[in-house]
């Protein structure tokens, strides 16, 4: 699953720790999600989308979509 987390975070000039604090997860968790090493659970994905005030599919994209 691809995501735009790094871009969205950069647009707000937030560090990984800042975003992690706002989401209630560790900086390492934010890094793992940004680099695609961890796919977040649905509750966390919704929380991320809510934080950025966007629909979930604008933050996360299915790699297999459109194939």
């Amino acid at each position: 699953m691809n995501n735009r987390l790094r871009v969205l975070r950069a647009e707000r000039a937030w560090s990984q720790a800042e975003l992690g604090g706002r989401l209630g997860v560790s900086r390492q968790a934010v890094n793992a999600i940004e680099t695609g090493k961890h796919d977040p659970s649905l509750p966390l994905a919704f929380k991320i989308a809510r934080l950025f005030n966007m629909p979930i599919e604008e933050v996360f994209q299915d790699e297999g979509a459109g194939q």
Binding site: A17, E18, G21, R22
Partner: peptide, 15 residues
């Protein structure tokens, strides 16, 4: 980078 409420919460969580 912005140091805000998130950083404080992150530090609290780590502690």
């Amino acid at each position: 980078m912005t140091v805000g409420e998130g950083e404080r919460l992150d530090a609290q969580r780590r502690k």
